[in-house]
């Protein structure tokens, strides 16, 4: 728990300055499932990146990259919106490669 600050010690108007705050690891809220991607099906449309409520979809430039599981809360929105069904939801305890990146049915090394 952070120490509670005085009224004149915090930014005005409720503004949250990104560098000053602890980012809560929303990944801890996951209830059973997490996304994984088959990169061979991904067409880099970035719809998943746009729709993820927790900015847990990572992009590299304009290319889809993978999932930041520390922040992914497993809502499955990304799998729902993916036009090519590249994203599948798998049990949370299933072993997946880093960032959930799979290629041709196997783990994809970064």
């Amino acid at each position: 728990m952070n120490e509670l600050k005085k009224y004149h010690e915090i930014p005005i108007g409720g503004t949250v300055i990104t560098k000053d705050v602890v980012q809560p690891k929303t990944g801890g809220w996951r209830m059973g499932e997490k996304p994984m991607v088959n990169l061979d099906k991904c067409v880099n449309c970035l719809i998943c990146w746009l729709d993820c409520p927790d900015t847990a979809v990572l992009a590299e430039g304009t290319d889809f990259f993978g999932f930041e599981y520390d922040y992914c809360k497993g809502c499955a929105l990304c799998a729902e919106v993916c036009p090519t069904d590249a994203i599948v939801m798998v049990p949370d305890d299933q072993e997946v490669p880093e960032y959930g990146r799979m290629l041709n049915g196997g783990p994809h090394e970064n």
Partner: peptide, 22 residues
């Protein structure tokens, strides 16, 4: 980068109101 107009819990709402008086 900042977040503006976020939710405030009882632990900070009062402080932000006090700022308005300041």
């Amino acid at each position: 980068p900042t977040t503006q107009g976020p939710f405030d819990m009882p632990d900070y709402y009062f402080e932000h109101k006090r700022q308005q008086q300041a």
